[in-house]
Amino acid sequence: MSIDERDTVSQPDTSMTIGVIADTHGLLRPEAVDALRGSDHILHAGDIGDPEILRVLEAIAPVSAIRGNNDDAPWAAGLPDELRLELAGVSIYLLHDRKQLAIDPGQEGIDVVIAGHSHKPLLEYRDGVLHLNPGAAGRRRFKLPITVALMRVHHRQVEVEHIDLLD
């Protein structure tokens, strides 16, 4: 999906907690569900693995999700490859693999780029844009942690907390 075909979810400029999860690969741990409770919106950055995961997350809060490279089953065909949203006045660009970022987020007015794929939690600024990888919440890969992230937005200021689900 191109940026011109994107979906937009718009919320007024307010306080909001956004749960961020990726790389469940068909396994939604109860610890992830507990960590995301209280979120006002949940973003899934791909490699979902099972549509039931989205249904469980939707029972917590509205969900915006994109397709990951392993989401090739027919149920995932309707998911976009990338998504641009505005939540609580913050512009968010969601894709699965940050290496496939084909736009200049700063020039596009993006505040936060969220990607999964690597299974490695990440929080860094690049050219004034926050880049976030929540890590993987599904099956462990190598010795990487099992994590999700919470983005707390207040008056367009973003704070991020990674939560280790097995700690």
Rank of each mutant, 00 (worst) to 15 (best):
R126I: 13
D4A: 10
I53C: 02
Q100T: 15
D164M: 02
A45K: 03
G26L: 04
S2A: 08
K120M: 10
A102G: 08
S118Q: 08
R29F: 00
R6C: 04
L130W: 07
S91Q: 15
I110T: 12
D104F: 09
P74M: 04
D167K: 07
L27M: 03
G49E: 02
N70C: 15
P12L: 13
P145W: 03
L166V: 12
L85S: 10
L85E: 10
A35P: 02
E86R: 15
I3R: 10
V20P: 04
T17G: 00
R84E: 14
H162I: 02
E159P: 01
G78A: 14
I146F: 02
Y125S: 08
R37E: 00
T147N: 08
P30E: 05
E52A: 15
H44Q: 09
L36S: 02
R55M: 09
V129M: 05
K143T: 14
P12Q: 12
I103T: 06
G46D: 09
N70A: 13
H117D: 14
A59P: 01
A73K: 13
N70H: 09
A59G: 11
L150W: 06
Q100H: 15
M16S: 06
W75G: 03
D164L: 04
W75F: 11
A137C: 09
V56N: 06
P62I: 11
P121V: 01
T24D: 04
P134C: 09
M151K: 07
L43G: 08
H41S: 05
G26D: 04
H154D: 15
V20Q: 05
I18N: 04
L101R: 14
H155T: 08
A61L: 00
P12V: 12
A61M: 01
L123C: 08
G68D: 09
E5C: 03
I114G: 11
A88P: 04
A76D: 00
T14V: 06
R140M: 09
H96T: 15
A59F: 00
V33Q: 00
Q107M: 14
L150K: 14
G68A: 12
I60V: 00
L87A: 13
I110V: 15
D111P: 01
L27W: 00
E5M: 11
A59V: 01
D71T: 02
E124M: 06
I48R: 05
I110H: 05
A137H: 05
V20I: 13
V158C: 12
A59W: 01
P51G: 07
A61H: 01
G26C: 06
V112R: 07
R98E: 15
D167M: 01
